[in-house]
Design a binder for these strands. Structure first.
Lengths: 109, 109
DNA sequence: AGAATATTTAGCCATGTTGCTAAATATATC
DNA sequence: GATATATTTAGCAACATGGCTAAATATTCT
């Protein structure tokens, strides 16, 4: 399926702390570029580029109103990233169950 | 918390398709470096480096037996990455619920 | 000891990323 | 129409990444 075709850019976008902070801020709702930039010590073009990386990764969407660009989280792609990682869920459940069993057996001695 | 302190390198490691393929292969259990390298058209040192990127990201662990290095998935860090992304779960549930409500209302007309 | 096997390290090159400042573009306001 | 505001684009420097080959290291086998 083409569902996972953007994982490269999605995970790459998530690998930067500034971009993750932007994402977290957007949980509050849609925000303009300058709103997003305010708390950071970076020049505006730097933030603008971070936003466009998130946009190309489909993690955020842009809505232009006059001269202001509003950015919002894209639920779809976030969900896709989690779904990809969840294929490992069985694996880590097994691991923790085995650890649990091990500890439980210790208790019985 | 220091729990999310490795997210930069973890997501960066996941951003490469070769490394994701390696991870998927490791779901089958622990494998040697040359086993892992076999299906790829890359030189062995290239795969060796990909593995060490995964290792530094805490996504895999290494167990050395004689001259052979065995690699396994690290359940902990996989779980941490998913947990980080799941803070957005409320957000995307809301989004999809709103969409659902919208479609439902359409049905009623 | 010497040869074979498993893997890493070093060094190179091409490309991509992330920060900057300066300039361009688009829209709103006086 | 000129000025102010919101944002992007261009171009640069520093550094990181991902591929390669050649060489080094560690272990096993004869």
């Amino acid at each position: 399926m083409a569902k996972y075709s953007k994982l490269d850019s999605t995970f790459a976008a998530l690998a930067d702390p500034t971009r993750r902070a932007i994402m977290e801020y957007l949980m509050d709702g849609k925000k303009s570029v300058s709103d997003i930039a305010k708390p950071f010590d970076f020049a505006l073009p730097t933030i603008s580029r971070h936003i466009s990386v998130l946009e190309k990764a489909d993690l955020v969407t842009r809505e232009i109103e006059g001269r202001t660009h509003y950015l919002s989280l894209n639920a779809n792609q976030l969900k896709t990233a989690v779904e990809y990682l969840e294929q490992y869920r069985d694996f880590w459940s097994d691991t923790f169950r085995r650890l649990d069993d091990f500890l439980r057996r210790d208790d019985e001695t």
